[in-house]
Computed example of a mutant assay.
Amino acid sequence: MTPVAIITGASSGIGAATARRLASEGFHVIAAARRADRLTDLVKEITAAGGTATAVPCDITSDESVANLAATVRDLSDPVTLLVNNAGGARGMDPVERGSVADWRWMYEVNVLGTLRVTQALLPELEASGTGTVIVLSSTAGLIAYEGGGGYVAAKHGQTALAETLRLELCGRPVRVVEIDPGLVKTEEFGLVRFGGDAEKAGAAYRGVPNPLVAEDVADCIAWCATRPHHVNVDRLVVRPLAQAAQHKVHRIG
């Protein structure tokens, strides 16, 4: 039987890279995201490389959409052993005193409540497999605050708290909970979403940084955690590029 891995936010960036990597590790990948056309292309790519995958359009902010994802998974004959809560995002860099309530609400909805919805919906299948793993892709922003990041920091702290609490509550049951916290990762969309499509602002965070992390680096971390023997639980993995010693300490050149 082929183990099944569900990945949210699989249409681009870390999610797409994780789908490719887990397929190469022998998982049947359920690629979930809002953009069905991108998912279709991803599944074709994985299949052409010898892997197996299924595209399931899903909006993690919608109860109905998440219920449809869970129903699709329940129809599978293979065991569901892995959930990667990757979908998330940031909007804006305003200080708290001028922060947009709408942006803060969106970030909490996507990062925290989206993770909650999907985890609740799929936990029965993960537990039934006897070797379930929930991976929560949070951020170093979930561990320390920084100026201009209030809404995103608050959401990621919430996501981190969710992961820690879930691990306590599942103690004694056959489901691991892994939190992965990347630092500076250069992907094609994260900054563009954060700055409303402004490519200049989106690129500023990476300017002069030698070898920032890329999506494949984080996918490698996800795959490593997911493929440890099931009695090994990597509670938290913090990963940054060599150039980033801490949230505020980044080496830049040029």
Rank of each mutant, 00 (worst) to 15 (best):
A204P: 00
T2M: 10
V110Q: 00
R105V: 09
H157E: 02
A202I: 01
T8E: 06
Q159P: 03
T18A: 13
R21G: 01
V66E: 04
A246W: 13
H248A: 10
S129H: 07
P57Y: 05
W106E: 07
S139Y: 04
E188S: 13
A223G: 06
M93F: 00
Q247T: 15
T187R: 03
V56N: 08
V239M: 12
L184N: 06
Y146Q: 13
R21M: 12
D59P: 04
L170P: 02
T8R: 04
H230C: 07
L22C: 10
N211A: 15
P210K: 13
A55H: 11
W104M: 14
A23Y: 13
A67K: 14
A141R: 01
V185S: 08
T133W: 06
S139C: 09
I6E: 10
G9V: 07
G158Y: 05
N111S: 02
R98A: 14
W104R: 09
S129G: 07
T40D: 15
P124E: 06
P241G: 02
A16N: 04
T61C: 07
T227G: 06
V250M: 05
A19C: 15
G130S: 05
T160C: 03
R173S: 02
D103L: 02
S11K: 04
A141L: 07
V110A: 08
R34C: 04
G51E: 06
A163C: 05
P229K: 08
L76Y: 12
E109H: 01
G148I: 03
E189G: 01
L242K: 12
T54M: 01
L39N: 07
A71L: 12
L42K: 11
F195V: 00
A16Q: 14
D63I: 08
A128P: 08
G13S: 12
Q247A: 14
T227R: 05
T133D: 12
S139N: 08
G148V: 04
Y146E: 12
R34M: 05
P212C: 09
A87S: 09
H248P: 00
A71I: 02
A36I: 05
N85R: 12
R240C: 05
E179L: 13
K44C: 01
V4F: 12
V56A: 11
R91H: 06
S12Q: 11
S77M: 02
Q244K: 11
L69A: 11
V56R: 11
V56L: 10
I253P: 05
L76W: 11
L113W: 14
E189C: 00
A161F: 11
C225Q: 04
G151C: 08
G130Y: 09
C225K: 03
T160L: 10
R228Q: 15
A10R: 03
S11W: 10
V234R: 01
I7F: 09
E200K: 11
A245Y: 04
M93T: 01
D78V: 01
D37Q: 07
T52D: 13
A17D: 11
R176P: 09
V239I: 15
E125S: 15
L83P: 09
V80T: 14
L122T: 01
D63G: 04
V66N: 04
L184I: 12
S77Y: 00
A245I: 10
P79L: 11
A199V: 13
D41K: 14
W106Y: 09
E179V: 00
L39Y: 06
P174D: 08
V250P: 01
Y152V: 01
A67N: 13
L116T: 09
L122R: 05
D181I: 00
V110W: 01
M93P: 02
A55Y: 09
V73Y: 05
A245Q: 11
